[in-house]
Computed example of a mutant assay.
Amino acid sequence: MDDHAPVHDIHPPAPRWTHVALRVTDIDATIDWYTTYTPMRLLDRRQDDMGYGAWLGHDDAPDSPFLLVIAQFFPGTDPFKDSPIARLAPFAHLGIELTSREAVEDAATRGDAGGWLRMAPTDMPPPIGYICMLSDPDGNMVEFSHDQGVYALARRLALKKS
Rank of each mutant, 00 (worst) to 15 (best):
G95D: 07
A21E: 13
D9S: 07
G139E: 05
P13E: 12
V69I: 14
I131G: 08
D147P: 04
G57C: 13
Y151M: 11
D26L: 10
L159K: 11
W33F: 13
W55M: 15
M50P: 00
D147R: 05
D106V: 01
A108V: 03
P13T: 10
S135P: 00
L94I: 05
M119N: 07
F74D: 11
H11A: 13
M124D: 14
T99I: 01
R110A: 07
D48A: 06
Q72T: 00
D60K: 06
G129K: 06
C132N: 00
L159Y: 11
M40P: 08
L94E: 04
A29L: 02
H58R: 15
P121Y: 05
S64M: 15
Q72E: 15
A86D: 13
P79Y: 05
S83I: 00
A120R: 13
T18Q: 12
T99L: 08
L22T: 05
I85P: 12
N140Q: 00
A103Y: 04
L56K: 09
F144G: 05
H58D: 15
D63R: 05
T35A: 04
T36P: 01
P84T: 05
V24P: 06
M133W: 03
D32C: 07
D106Y: 02
Y52S: 06
L56R: 07
D136M: 03
D32N: 11
A120W: 01
Y37K: 03
L159H: 10
F73Y: 12
F144Q: 09
S162Y: 06
L22P: 00
D2T: 04
K160F: 15
G76R: 01
F66A: 00
I128W: 03
L153A: 02
D48W: 02
V24Y: 02
D49G: 06
K81S: 01
I85Q: 08
E105S: 09
A5T: 14
A5E: 15
